[in-house]
């Protein structure tokens, strides 16, 4: 056996997939070839390194949360079977609480404003004339990246929902300089769906009384609903603490 043939069987050898006789022949060559010995050593080391690559541990309550979600699913099934289904489309907080990002956002509100807005997108068939159902406020500091998390609770999966984010003149989404509107199509999964908006206010509002709105619009099969976020200049609500998460529940 020569070096070229050894290369051909290198991975099978390191994986231990060679027949005994093949292995013996290969080892005979390796024992007398410094180059192939190094090749085998490197490949074995790489395999060990791959197996030892670090992974972040899951949250301490990871398993509990999943088991709790299964319990919750089972309860829903039972209620459904007994005809006691909640048909009002109300948001059920326990379902949200088990979403991992919720806990992460609540504990991780460090430098950015983390605003959690729970919105039900149920009843697409009911589109009121005035589609603004609720307004929440955020305070943006000019030229500082701040994150706003919106949570949309969907009672069922919506395969192709169209999202529009419409911005006021003094607010941009980080990485999309100068764009006043972003649109894309995505899937809404059943349960909580997070939309993280990395916002930057480009300038302070000049008029202390002026108000600007960010509109999050979700459209599906010709119907749409708007959710508005009022952007307030810092001077207007100086008492508002920037690192406090606000939770709004809309039913």
């Amino acid at each position: 056996m020569n070096c070229e043939q050894t290369r051909q069987y290198l991975y099978d050898y390191v994986d231990g997939n060679l027949e005994s006789i093949q292995q013996q022949v290969l080892e005979q060559h390796i024992s007398g070839c410094e180059h192939c010995t190094l090749l085998v050593e490197q490949q074995s080391k790489l395999k060990t390194q791959l197996q030892n690559m670090p992974v972040a541990e899951p949250s301490s309550d990871f398993e509990q949360r999943i088991i709790a979600r299964i319990d919750s699913e089972r309860d829903s099934e039972r209620k459904s079977e007994s005809g006691a289904t909640n048909k009002s489309g109300k948001i059920t907080m326990p379902g949200f609480m088990t979403q991992n990002w919720f806990a992460a956002a609540m504990s991780g509100a460090v430098t950015a404003v983390v605003l959690l807005w729970f919105i039900s997108v149920d009843n697409f068939s009911i589109t009121p004339a005035s589609s603004t159902l609720s307004v929440v406020s955020i305070e943006l500091v000019p030229n500082q990246l701040q994150k706003v998390n919106l949570a949309f609770n969907s009672p069922h999966e919506i395969d192709k929902a169209t999202f529009n984010i419409i911005l006021p003149a003094n607010v941009e989404i980080n990485g999309h300089k100068g764009k006043r509107e972003l649109q894309w199509v995505s899937k809404l999964k059943q349960g909580a769906n997070r939309l993280a908006l990395p916002l930057v206010a480009t300038r302070l509002l000049t008029n202390a009384n002026s108000e600007n709105f960010i509109t999050a619009r979700i459209s599906h099969e010709g119907k749409s609903r708007d959710f508005k976020i009022k952007v307030i200049s810092k001077a207007q609500q100086s008492s508002m603490q920037r690192d406090i998460s606000s939770v709004f529940v809309m039913t």
């Binding site: 989404i173 990485g175 999309h176 972003l182 993280a196 908006l197």
Partner: peptide, 14 residues
């Protein structure tokens, strides 16, 4: 998620 333009934004914080 690849169609979502927000996913292309740097999200170093998280």
């Amino acid at each position: 998620n690849k169609n979502n333009p927000l996913n292309n934004v740097d999200d170093n914080e998280d």
